[in-house]
Amino acid sequence: MKTLPLCFIVFLFQAIYAIDGNLTLVMVHALWRHGDRTPTETYHNDKFTVDYWKYGGGGWGQLTPIGMKQHMILGRKIRDRYINGHPYNFLKPQYDQQEVFVRATDKNRTLLSAASNMIGMYSAREGENFNRPGYDFPEESGWPVGYVPIPIHTIDDAGDHLLDVDNACPLQDTVWELAKTTSIVSNYFNSENVTALMRNLTNFCGEDINPENLWILFNALKIEKQYFPEVFQNFTPWYTDALWEQIDIVNSQVQDFQNGLGLEGVVVKGIDIGRTLRKIRGGTLVNDIYNRMNRKAECLINTSQECAYTNNLKFFAYSAHDTTLYALFSLLDVAHFAVQPRGYPLYSACVLIEQWQDLNTNKTYFKWCNFDILKGSSSTSSIFASILVFLFSFVFIR
Rank of each mutant, 00 (worst) to 15 (best):
M1H: 12
V10N: 11
A15V: 10
A18G: 02
G21R: 15
L25A: 08
V26L: 07
H29K: 12
A30E: 05
L31E: 01
R33T: 08
R33D: 01
R37A: 05
T42E: 03
T42Y: 05
N45S: 13
D46E: 06
V50Y: 06
Y55V: 02
G57Y: 08
G59W: 09
W60P: 02
G61S: 11
T64Q: 08
M68H: 10
K69S: 11
G75M: 05
I78M: 14
I78N: 01
R79Y: 08
H86I: 10
P93F: 12
P93A: 15
Q94D: 04
Q98L: 13
V102K: 00
A104S: 15
K107E: 04
L111T: 09
A114C: 07
A115R: 13
I119D: 00
Y122D: 01
N131A: 02
N131E: 00
P138H: 15
V145S: 11
V148C: 03
I152T: 03
T154G: 03
T154W: 09
I155L: 09
D157K: 15
L163K: 00
D173Q: 12
T174Y: 14
V175E: 01
V175A: 04
L178P: 00
K180P: 00
T181G: 06
I184V: 15
S186M: 10
Y188A: 06
N190I: 04
L197E: 01
L201V: 02
N203T: 12
F204Q: 04
D208V: 13
L217T: 01
F218D: 02
A220Q: 03
L221G: 01
K225Y: 11
P237D: 05
D256A: 14
D256K: 15
Q258P: 00
N259G: 03
L261E: 01
L263R: 01
V268M: 13
D272Q: 13
K279A: 12
E298C: 07
L300R: 15
L300T: 05
E306Y: 10
E306Q: 12
A308Q: 11
A308S: 11
A308H: 11
N311E: 03
L313F: 07
S330G: 06
L331I: 07
L331N: 02
A335Y: 10
F337L: 14
A338G: 03
V339L: 04
V339D: 00
Y344H: 12
Y347M: 13
I353H: 08
I353L: 14
L359I: 07
N362Q: 12
F366C: 11
K367M: 10
W368G: 09
N370M: 13
F371A: 14
D372V: 06
I373T: 06
L374D: 04
K375H: 13
G376D: 05
S377D: 05
T380E: 07
S381I: 04
S386C: 09
I387T: 06
F390Q: 09
F392L: 13
F392M: 11
R398Y: 13
